[in-house]
């Protein structure tokens, strides 16, 4: 069996899938995120965002700082609707 390197654990995205997309010309983090869902899972890219950034930088031969990173979206971590609806009474539940 061919070995696979998992980049995004929440959405089960492999390096091989990302490389395939880069070969097709999708070389922005935003595009790869939307096509593969890399970084769109429950942890919101805590691990894979930097991995994807590093792989992209390598592929397009640039410094990671030169690559436009995907937007960090709220909320900062997963939060139950009941906590938002309960307001201050539920502060401990987050």
């Amino acid at each position: 069996m061919k070995s696979k390197t998992v980049i995004c654990r929440c959405e089960d995205v492999t390096l091989e899938e990302i490389e395939e997309l880069m070969e097709k010309g999708y070389t922005s983090m935003d595009e790869i995120k939307r096509i593969t869902r890399c970084g769109m899972g429950q942890c919101q890219g805590r691990t894979c965002r930097t991995l994807l950034l590093a792989e992209l930088a390598k592929a397009v031969k640039t410094h990671p700082a030169e690559i436009k990173i995907t937007t960090f979206r709220p909320p900062a971590k997963n939060i139950k609707m009941s906590v938002i609806l309960g307001g201050i009474d539920n502060e401990q539940n987050g």
Binding site: M40, G41, Q42, Q44, T71, R73, P74, P75, N78, I79, K80, M81, S82, I84, L85
Partner: peptide, 17 residues
Amino acid sequence: AVRFLPYLRNIRIVRQW
């Protein structure tokens, strides 16, 4: 959301945009 589907209370929001 919870008005129409009360069980959503216990589900976590991951992201908004």
